[in-house]
Structures are given as structure tokens and as C-alpha cells.
Simulated scan of single mutants.
Amino acid sequence: MRVLIVSNDRDYIKKEKKIYEDADVALSVESAEVMLSKKKYDFILSDLVKDNLGGCAVKKLDEEKEKKEIRPLKQEIIAVYSFKGGVGKTTFVRTLLESLDKNIKVLVADLNFRDGGSDLSFMLDLPVLPHIGMWLKERTKESFFENLIEYSSSVFILQSPPKVSLVKDIKESDVDTLVKFARSKFDVIIFDLPNEFNEVVKAALDNATKIIALSKGIEGEFARMKEFPYEFLTIFVKPEKGFKKYTKLLNLKYRVISSLSKEIDTVYDFIFS
């Protein structure tokens, strides 16, 4: 998230920087206009400008992070799963990692292996190298951290390789080792998992402190939910009509949303409460 702070008040800037530590700063409206002509920002925080500047919206601090900072009270390992494809799982992972408090150190481990690269790599516009297959060549702690991609100052990615053959020898114990290494540095570990149930996925689920399942509320998904051997929280995104009868039958813990980006606070409360 790109934020521009426009102010000549040192205390104001300091207050904003506590929340948006990576934000750019312009000390005048004129400087801000120049910066806006060179870079695209998601929004502006300012005590000098009221509504918008250069077509970019100005928001009050209490409209953003100050309204409610969501911070895990303990180290969390979140496995993001689905019972079918096309439910917005990767979009959810991206929204989650980009919205967490900037003081939280986050690792996203992408175990969604497929030839041609994973959806997360494309969505985040990641370089081809490094990837998890490079760590598997040595399996050392040093190599693990060397092969992470720094997505932002607080978010790192262990990405899927461009070819499945590059991780053909991955084992359950590798997932256990990954978690062991990651726990030494990160507050939150997020597993982006395929809608499969193999030994590697099982290892990630075994290590998770919370499992989040995304669903469209389609009848076929509920049959798989019934056989799923783990407790999980379900987020229904624009579910089909009649889904509630299945939630009662399966005694699901769930939330219903229409937009991940607009209702991320609801999702946070559900995950971290």
C-alpha cells in the first residue's frame, strides 16, 4: 500500500509514520503535486489538504489504521484453504498480508505448486527467482532466509517455483522445518495452499494454529467440508442461496462477506478474536 503524507508539522508526520512507516512525505502541497506526477499512491494523509490532491483522495487518519489496529496477540500460523478452485483464495492472501499492521513480521509460504508459476507470484508480480525449490537443495536455515523475497519491509514471500519438477522431492518434514525456521523471525506465517489434500498440505494444516477456508457456498463444497479432518473457520464470499442449511448441518463457524477489500476488518475480527 502506497501512502503519501503531506504536512509541514513534525508531530503530525511522526504520528502518521508510526502507522505507515513506509509512507513518503511531502512538506508542502507543491512538493506533493510533483511526487504525485511521478508515482501512484493509494491515498494521502494530510493536515494541509482536505479532500483530494491531483486526483488522489485525502483521508483522515481515523478512517484508516487508527480506527482499529488489528494485531495478533500471539504468533499465528494461518493456513488458507479451499474446497474448490476459483473462490478468491489468493486474493484473500494478498489482502491479508497487505493489510496487517506494518509492525507485524509476516511470511507467506506459497505451497500452491503448478507448472507456469502460481497465482500468487503473478498477482504480486514477483521475480522468477528465488523460490522454495532453491532452499530444498540445501535445506539449511541460512539458505531458507536467503531464498525469501522481500515484498515489503514487513512481508516476505517463500514463493512457489515455475515448475512442479523443482519441488518433486519436498516432504512433510520440510514443512515442519520451514515452520521451525520461520518461527524464529516472523509473527505471522501464512500458508497459501492448493485445493488438494496431499501429504505436504496435510503437514501445513497440522502446523496451523488456524485454518481459514474460503467458499462460495456451493453444494459440492459441503460434502468435502464434512470429510475434512480439521477444525476450520469459513469465510463465504458472495455465497449461493441456500448455503445456510449446510452451515447448520455441519455446525460451521463462519462469516459472510461480499468484498474482501471492503470488509477486511470483519475478516480480521473473525480470524484473530
Rank of each mutant, 00 (worst) to 15 (best):
K59M: 13
L111P: 04
E172S: 14
I157M: 04
L97C: 13
M123N: 11
L193K: 07
G86W: 09
G85T: 06
K226M: 09
I104V: 12
V34C: 00
K17D: 02
P72E: 04
V93H: 10
K185T: 08
V179C: 06
A223G: 03
Y254E: 00
T234Y: 00
F156G: 01
V128G: 03
R139E: 05
P130K: 11
N195L: 06
P127A: 13
A182I: 00
V80S: 08
K89W: 10
S184E: 15
I19L: 15
E227A: 09
A208Q: 03
S143I: 07
H131I: 10
F92S: 07
T177H: 02
L214P: 00
E227T: 09
K18Y: 13
F191T: 03
G54M: 09
A204K: 04
I212S: 00
D62L: 07
V201G: 03
K59N: 04
L61E: 02
K248M: 06
K38V: 00
E199R: 11
R139I: 03
F270S: 07
S165M: 11
S153T: 13
L252R: 10
T177S: 05
I70N: 12
Y230S: 07
S37Q: 14
G55E: 05
K163R: 14
L205P: 10
F144E: 06
I212F: 02
L100Q: 14
S121G: 09
G220L: 04
K262M: 15
D176A: 03
F181Q: 00
F145V: 08
N207F: 02
V29R: 11
E172P: 09
K216D: 03
G54I: 03
I218G: 07
V155S: 09
D51N: 15
S99V: 09
F83P: 05
E221P: 07
D176N: 09
A182V: 00
F243C: 00
L136Q: 01
K65V: 14
I211H: 01
I212W: 00
A23Y: 02
S31R: 10
K168A: 14
Y81R: 07
E138N: 08
D125M: 11
Q75G: 12
R183M: 09
K245Q: 04
I149K: 10
L36F: 04
K102A: 12
R10T: 14
G133K: 08
K89P: 08
V267Y: 06
E98H: 14
I264H: 08
E227R: 15
D187M: 09
N103V: 10
V267M: 04
P127C: 10
Q75H: 13
K253N: 13
E142N: 03
S37F: 07
V58A: 01
T209I: 04
G85V: 05
R183N: 07
E98T: 14
I19V: 15
Y20T: 11
L260E: 11
K245L: 03
D47G: 02
L158W: 05
V201W: 08
V155W: 11
V175P: 02
M134R: 13
